[in-house]
Design a protein around this nucleic acid. Sequence first.
DNA 1: TCTGGGGTCCTAGGACCC
DNA 2: TCTGGGGTCCTAGGACCC
Length: 426
Amino acid sequence: MGENGVRGSARGTREAANPPKILLVDCDMFYVQVARLEDPDGAGKEDLLIVGGSPTGRGVVTSASYGVREFGVRSGMPTGQALGLCPEAKVVPVSRKACSLRSRQVREALQDLSPVVQAASIDEFYLDLSGTERLLHQEPLASTAGRIREEILSRTAISVSIGGGTRKLIAKLAAGTAKPGGVRVVDPGQEEAFMMSFELREIPGIGPALAQALEKKGLVSVEDLLPVDRAWLERWLGPSRASWLWNRARGRDSSRVNPSESRKSISSERTFGKDLSDDRDLERELLRLTTSVGATLRRKGLRGRTITVKIRDEDFRTRQAGHTLPDAVEADATLYSVAQNLYRELRRKRRVGVRLLGVGISSLVDGDSPPQLDLFGGKAPVEPERDRVVSRVLDDLRDRFGHRAILPGRMLENRNKDEPEIERKS
DNA sequence: TCTGGGGTCCTAGGACCC
DNA sequence: TCTGGGGTCCTAGGACCC
């Protein structure tokens, strides 16, 4: 946090001589690009393209082409509303598989070009090029960024925009001004001047809630905030949030480019086409979601201790319940028995129609790390080895015969007769 | 036209231990 | 019989991001 006393520190002195060189590589309307690349004759030929959920159901826009954005369409907007603004647009579904594949290709290409790469999201990557001056023969950062952009385009067919500066925050905001398909670097020392061109709500970390609270105090732009008395800010927001905001508005950000951010949680959730009330229906969905979370968990070689169930009621009120086990687990049987108890507890408290159901797992550890030992060694394991074996065998069968082939027992009764024949993958 | 799905981080209160 | 703080873990909720 406190970035203020940096001037006299070792870091400050080092930086004055050799300022950090941070880039943010941001894929332009990523989901739209991927949809076009996957279907060059269909989506590839549409100028007005929306990627997202179905307009008749409860879908929202994941990403829209620039042509569509001119009509005021934004991501997160209900697809029906988007079509109201831009009736000519074509809507196609998101292909998560294709998107993660393309994302990985971009990341791998960047890793060939830069020593330190951090994936910040599916379509954003931070690069730290500090200390590469000799390697790059003192090439200006903007030229390096331009070369990286061209290289990524030719190797992955994905167009990116790149922002650069001495801080992640500066690089991120600069990338936003470079879109689409451009490069923008803020020179060292120009950070505060650069920040002056933004409204507070454009600063990453200032969302709708804080932006609105600031606006009520008459603070809309960065310029509005700079002269504000720091002590007043602390009385209003508390010391920690005040200092965060104080620094952000000045372009100060102490976070580093960290290539090895490990995953903290895995979850799966679903909004139903129509609200569900029947517990049998809901528990069947719960089982599906749990199995999906379990499969991801095991595929990544992880186990987890905390299981969470989330319900969004028909009135959009969201409730959550969680339980932490003494040992990390991975088998569907364990996950489901905990999830079912949590689900029933939530339903006992409030029984109305359910719009969304979700299951998550956190407190993750490597699957091969030893279980927590208790001093007397006599504790029964939370999860029988047999259950783990069963889950892994089912994972393997699903891999070979498709995920519809093996459904949990309770689901078999409800299998639809007109589902496609089981396909054998090569 | 009502509001997706995948995440991260922070806060605050209570339990529990020393 | 009464009275401490500090640290850590767990839980629920909420803000925020893409």
